[in-house]
Design a protein around this nucleic acid. Structure first.
Lengths: 213, 213
DNA sequence: AAAAGATCCCCTGTTTTCAGGGGTGTAAAA
DNA sequence: TTTTACACCCCTGAAAACAGGGGATCTTTT
């Protein structure tokens, strides 16, 4: 029982390196390699009864990049795993990939040992993110706050919190012993102050500020 | 120029250990120790012009625990740093503390080296979380998803996503080439299906599902 | 072939949000 | 002392959300 892998990268050098790292691994069968995500998507569309277990992919590629590839796969073949291998350690990028539910992420300078560990972990159904990546991601979480919180007054935060907790204006008025008009004023000010359009925007802000869980 | 520290823990043993770890550190002055958060809060309320730089605290304590203490401090003395030292590695707990903007978190079995590093890092204005803690937190992020996503259809997810992106019903109808009645139906179904009350609830769900950033 | 699920559309109402304007008193900062 | 920030309150009118019902068509599963 072998696992079937595909590798996608537009750099020949990388493909070679990856192949050499995996060639002595009996349990993995490299079905084919691709220079962009496009060929993989085509393959998946034709062979609907796909027998692929894992795609190892770079992020930056011509035509269809790693992110688009991941989106397509997660949408149409939810059981197919994706391991991203990249040299970008941009927090935004990492955040995007985590949100998009990629199964693993290791840097391009990873050791063979880590590559194999990542593949193995992912195939067993778990996620694998190298500690470098975790480091970057955690830092981005810690530094994301603060900068925005300061502009709101205590009362505004109170109201915002209750709004995000799905309370209606009247309920908020009752709990804070205010007139509903007052609460409406606060909501109005919050919307203009935070430059959002409606409750959804306010809720997102409340979450970003850590006002609610 | 010394830094003033306070230590809070209801276990004498822990206090002793902490003191011994810090006694040879010239730059830190332990102002006093407390057996619960209550005494610290009292102190802060009386000495409003506080000269404290950092509080090192346990989580589980009688009367006022570490979380309540942190909330009080962040509310009333935003510049005062908090380092949590605990043996709990519960993801929920860690998550709460990160949300509540605690400045650092190390396990109780941490080495002296790590303790000093944590203190130093925090006093320099940065956050410090030990790698154990990061590990636990990251895993909780990865495993939080999936379980809820499956119950929604593709179309429902589309609509939910657009709702959470602050679009109005009419706008959603236009982008998806639907009647606004249809979109209203989807919204209605989502609200009952996800068991929430309004837009705020839907938005929170969308974020939890990773549909939006 | 029947059942179930998904997508799509419509109706009648009520409640709430949202946009825009107005205002007061008080406490702190310039 | 004047200005600024904050907390508080009110009004109108339009737009959107929300509650609860209905039904049509298509595909997939049983």
């Amino acid at each position: 029982m072998k696992y079937n892998l595909i590798i996608a990268d537009d750099h020949k050098m990388f493909l070679e390196g990856m192949l050499s790292m995996l060639e002595d691994q009996e349990q993995y069968h490299i079905m084919f390699t691709a220079k962009s995500g496009e060929n993989i998507i085509k393959y998946l569309q034709i062979n609907s009864s796909n027998d692929i277990d894992l795609i190892i992919t770079d992020i930056t590629m011509p035509d269809v990049d790693g992110i688009a590839l991941n989106s397509f796969v997660k949408e149409n073949h939810p059981d197919l795993k994706i391991l991203v291998v990249s040299m970008h350690h941009d927090p935004g990028m990492i955040n995007t990939l985590i949100k998009k539910d990629v199964d693993g992420y290791i840097p391009k300078n990873a050791e063979k040992r880590e590559l194999l560990l990542a593949i193995q972990t992912i195939l067993s159904g778990k996620k694998y993110f190298s500690s470098d990546i975790k480091e970057v991601y955690m830092n981005s979480i810690f530094h994301k706050k603060k900068d925005v919180l300061i502009s709101l007054t205590k009362r505004e935060r109170d109201v915002l919190k209750l709004i995000a907790q799905e309370h209606t204006t009247q309920e908020i008025a009752d709990t804070l012993f205010l007139s509903k008009h007052t609460v409406e004023s606060y909501r109005k000010n919050l919307i203009s102050k935070l430059n959002v359009r409606n409750l959804a925007g306010l809720t997102k802000y409340a979450i970003k500020l850590g006002l609610i869980d």
